[in-house]
Every structure is written in C-alpha cells, then in structure tokens.
C-alpha cells in the first residue's frame, strides 16, 4: 500500500485501539463459543431471552451511554465512566 492511501480514514492511535478492543472482544467471544457452544441462552432479570452475544451487545451499548451521560453531567476525566462501564458489563453478564 502506498503511503497515505488510508489518509481519508484519518486514523488516530486512540480510535485504532478502540476498534482493536472491539475486535478483540469478538475474537474472545468466538473462542468462548468454540469452547462452550450454544451461547448459554437464559432469561435474566429483565425477563428477556439473551445469549452471550446479546449480553455483549447490551454491555457495549450501556458502556456508550454511561460515557455519554458522564460527559453530559459530570465532564472530564472519563476514566471513572470506564470503570462504571466495566462494572455494568460484569452485572449484565451475571444477571441479564
């Protein structure tokens, strides 16, 4: 690839690591699925049927909104919002 061919996508290391994290999550989920097939479906506290993939989706969506709400009502720095998101994700994987 010639230098500058990807310039239009305007990558930064921050966004690259963000997408790297998402990709890593998908790889982990794939490995998990191969180890324990079936997705562990169940009905949790929300009363809806979820599999592992659904719980990851809800966790990521929740993380996005935790960060947005933190930014809207509290402001910088954002790392406490990340901690809250991780805690929320653990709860979602445990109980939803």
């Amino acid at each position: 690839m010639e230098p500058g061919a990807m310039d239009w996508m305007a990558w930064t290391w921050q966004t690259a690591s963000f997408f790297g994290f998402i990709a890593a999550m998908l790889v982990v989920m794939t490995v998990w699925e191969l180890r324990a097939p079936g997705g562990n479906p169940r009905r949790g506290v929300l009363g809806i049927d979820t599999t592992r993939g659904d719980r990851l989706f809800v966790s990521l969506l929740a993380a996005a909104f935790v960060h947005l709400l933190w930014l809207a009502f509290i402001g910088m720095p954002l790392w406490p919002a990340t901690l809250v998101s991780v805690a929320v994700a653990v709860l979602i994987f445990r109980y939803v």
């Binding site: 996508m9 305007a10 930064t12 966004t15 930014l71 402001g75 954002l78």
Partner: peptide, 26 residues
Amino acid sequence: MTVVNYSVQETFGDNQFFFEGVTWFE
C-alpha cells in the same frame, strides 16, 4: 469507523486532522 475517527478530530480540509479528544461530544 471513519465517522468515529472524524468525531475526535478537527479538520480544515486538505486531509489535515488535529486530535481533539471528546471535545465535540461535550
């Protein structure tokens, strides 16, 4: 992905971008 990249940067055209963090979201 491109939109995510743009959302944390400022541009004045000519494919020059400057990192702004979460300023635009705020």
